[in-house]
Design a protein around this nucleic acid. Structure first.
Length: 734
DNA sequence: ATTAGGG
DNA sequence: CCCTAAT
């Protein structure tokens, strides 16, 4: 392994051999790092800048590059109309990242006009290609589309420019990059770029639905009450379907509701005109006319796919002497058989319609004040119906019911943290201490702003919301606990003291996700009681959530302090928890997950999918995480797939050509230093697949087709370095 | 933290 | 892409 520096010329056409000797493991990072350093540390950011520049070239009317302090604008031009959108991003997520999604999806020309635009006009046209390349580097898959539309000459020299740039050889850009505040903002906002007089903003109901595996899930709803269905549909935001029911004078009978799931499926309805802007999906809900009993039956067409979807809002009008009550029902967990909202629940609701209504109203109002609401945010906890034995792992117990007797019995912790197993044993034996069990089906989404011209399509809107949401998530979140809609005064109070265990009604308790404060102010924020629950614990688990009921006599409620109280949060489990149980080695996961976005400091907690005892246990436990939220979010979750763009492949090929295989880390630094989502392992893997791709028949290739020319190059390079490695091996053997 | 491979 | 073993 100490063999290096051999000349590798003539390996392939036009290649003169690597300029750098194979770095020894010991010297890793020196040579290149040094070079990078020499550029004055401004290196990081070059890409961003270039992205910017690239944008300049794209701009139709490069006339508008007014500075907007700390504001990054992304303009999106569509051939036909003036579909311009400005994406103001203030998040820790590199704006390019955010922009990427948007752009990629839009598949259209992009324009990036950063605040420092005025400083960027130094690049000349000749740099356009380079810029493009850079841009691509940052935007990943967006590149292709961009490039194509731009008609920009291909990057020549196989990415040499990129390397140079990476090495900090673009003086013009260095200074500019400095101090660019692009990686630390907080809000996402979409607003019309062009002064659109006509683009009035109107309230929109936007709902973010947690999606499962990109697949399309379906829910079949049936109810005995037309009103219920009506409400359901309404809440499911299926305008068309709703209208359908409204129109009918006589009891409607049947209809379909298709819920799309995926990462986030945004469904919306313009409330201004009351007209649906998005065609409703076909509905497959049938209204079963029975008695006046309000029973909602929820069946799943694809049980195994729908484990996660769980709550609906049901409007029950006409009940209780004219009361128009709105209540939320939580779907009983099992997904096998048809679910019924037990009569008990219904009765309960009926008995306290006012309460429900009140709560709902408050929530809605609150949401509206923020400009956008997430209906699913508000949730109710229902008493778990006597579900048949087995998998009641995740039963949700109504808090009220808790004090009405059967507390101890059901006390069986629902914990699900990695170590829950061991602990559960302990707890099961003794602790009879009343536990507070909550079911958080969803969190209220922090404020998001989405403004766009009327000309924008619904797809655009969805995209925008998506971006806003993602950006927000990337910026880090923290949990806020609200009681009666108000922030809990003393976060150190115990659940008992707060009355969360008995007195409080489920609906009086709210959880909300809010943007994380600046990473710099860790201790500034008082910790939420819940956060405290599992603080000072980096050790995976043992303390988080439900565990830790070490002691405890039924009446020893005093012990329910922030430290010991076992609190389980059953978060709507994602159907596909495929990856969840994998991360046994958290450190590994951590290591491998590049900090695409740093997150706020202490206090930040996240919901962590716990590992159950192997059953359908999918509850999540609160776990402290003072590092990266993304990391947290990623735990156990597979990273989003991000296909390599041709440009990226080019860059990779070029680097491998020069450095050979086996030096992925250097390759990463060389050509993907700014692509935070590409780890050296990714590059290595990509090369592997590239080689494979190049060896199979063209018709067997999938995805974005890599130019044959490139693939041939891959083969040559691969062959070359393989031989080279063999030689070395031979030398050693000798 | 990296590298190399299998899955 | 993920997961691991071995460096």
């Amino acid at each position: 392994m100490e063999t290096h520096g051999q000349r590798v010329g003539g390996g392939f056409p036009g290649y003169n051999g690597p300029a750098l000797p194979r770095a020894m493991r010991s010297s890793r990072g020196r040579a290149e790092s040094a070079r990078l350093q020499s550029t004055g540390g401004a290196q990081s950011g070059v890409f961003e800048l270039l992205a910017t520049v690239a944008g300049q070239f794209l701009q139709d009317d490069g006339s508008k590059k007014e500075d907007q302090n700390n504001e990054v604008k992304l303009g999106c031009h569509k051939p036909l109309d003036q579909q311009k959108l400005i994406l103001e991003m203030n998040s820790q997520v590199p704006y390019t990242e955010c922009a990427m999604n948007y752009l990629v999806a839009q598949e259209q020309q992009i324009t990036v006009t950063p605040s420092i635009a005025s400083q960027v006009d130094t690049l000349k046209e000749s740099d356009s290609a380079l810029s493009t390349a850079k841009f691509d580097q940052n935007l990943g898959t967006a590149s292709v589309a961009v490039k194509e539309r731009m008609h920009v000459p291909e990057v020549q020299g196989g990415g040499t420019e990129m390397e140079q740039c990476s090495a900090g050889k673009l003086p013009e850009t260095e200074e500019i990059t400095e101090g660019m505040p692009m990686q630390t903002m907080e809000t996402v906002k979409l607003m019309p770029l062009m002064s659109s007089k006509d683009s009035h903003s109107f309230p929109l109901d936007i709902e973010l639905l947690p999606l499962i595996e990109q697949e399309e899930k379906q829910l079949s709803l049936s109810t005995e009450s037309n009103e219920l269905v009506e409400g359901l549909l309404e809440d499911l935001e299926c305008p068309k379907a709703l209208g359908k029911f409204e129109a009918g004078t006589e009891p409607a009978h049947g209809g379909d509701v298709t819920l799309e799931t995926g990462l986030f499926q945004v469904q919306c309805k313009a409330s201004a005109s009351g007209e649906a802007v998005e065609p409703a999906k076909p509905i497959d809900a049938s209204i079963i006319k029975t008695e006046e009993k309000i029973t909602v039956k929820v069946e799943e067409k694809n049980p195994h796919l729908l484990t996660g979807v769980t709550s609906f809002m049901v409007t029950t009008s006409g009940l209780e002497g004219g009361h128009n009550t709105r209540a939320m029902f939580k779907r009983v967990k099992s997904n096998r058989d048809a679910k019924f909202f037990n009569q008990e629940t219904i009765r309960h609701l009926r008995s306290s319609p006012r309460l429900v209504q009140e709560t709902m109203t408050k929530r809605l109002k609150n949401s509206f004040s923020k400009g956008l609401k997430s209906r699913r945010a508000a949730n109710k906890v229902l008493k778990s119906s006597p579900v048949s034995g087995r998998r009641r792992k995740r039963q949700h117990v109504d808090m009220e019911s808790a004090d009405s007797g059967s507390s101890g019995a059901k006390a069986a912790s629902v914990a699900s943290s990695p170590t829950a197993k061991g602990v559960s044993k302990r707890s099961s034996k003794k602790s009879c201490e009343p536990h507070v069990k909550l079911s958080i089906k969803s969190f209220a989404v922090p404020e998001l702003f989405v403004d766009l011209p009327e000309s924008a399509s619904v797809a655009n809107l969805k995209r925008a919301v998506m971006d806003a949401a993602m950006s927000l998530l990337g910026g880090g979140l923290r949990v806020r606990v609200l009681m009666q809609g108000k922030k809990v005064p003393d976060e150190g109070a115990t659940l008992l003291q707060m009355g969360i265990s008995r007195t409080a009604r489920p609906e009086s308790l709210d959880f909300m996700l809010e943007p994380s404060p600046l990473p710099s102010s860790p201790s500034t924020i008082p910790e939420d009681p819940l956060l405290v629950l599992s603080h000072a614990t980096n050790q995976p688990s043992l303390r988080s959530g439900t565990l830790g009921h070490t002691k405890g006599s039924p009446d020893e409620h005093d012990n329910i302090d922030t430290k010991e109280a076992g609190c389980t949060f059953s978060v709507a489990p994602d159907t596909s928890l495929k990856g969840f149980n994998r991360s046994k080695n958290k450190s590994t996961v951590t290591e491998r997950i590049p900090r695409e976005s740093l997150v706020a400091g202490s206090g930040a907690i996240i919901l962590h999918p716990g590992m159950g005892t192997g059953d359908d246990l999918t509850a999540m436990a609160l776990v402290p995480l003072r590092q990266k939220i993304t990391q947290a979010l990623d735990i156990g979750k597979r990273r989003v797939r991000r296909p390599f763009s041709v440009t990226e492949v080019e860059a990779l090929v070029h680097s491998v050509e020069k450095l050979g295989t086996g030096r992925w880390r250097d390759i990463k630094l060389r050509s993907f230093d700014q692509a935070k989502h590409r780890t050296y392992v990714d590059l290595k893997d990509k090369w592997k697949t590239l080689v494979h791709t190049a060896q199979i028949a063209p018709h067997q290739r999938r995805g974005e087709t890599v130019p044959q020319e490139l693939l041939e190059r891959v083969i040559r390079i691969h062959t070359y370095w393989t031989a080279q490695a063999a030689k070395q091996q031979a030398e050693l053997d000798f």
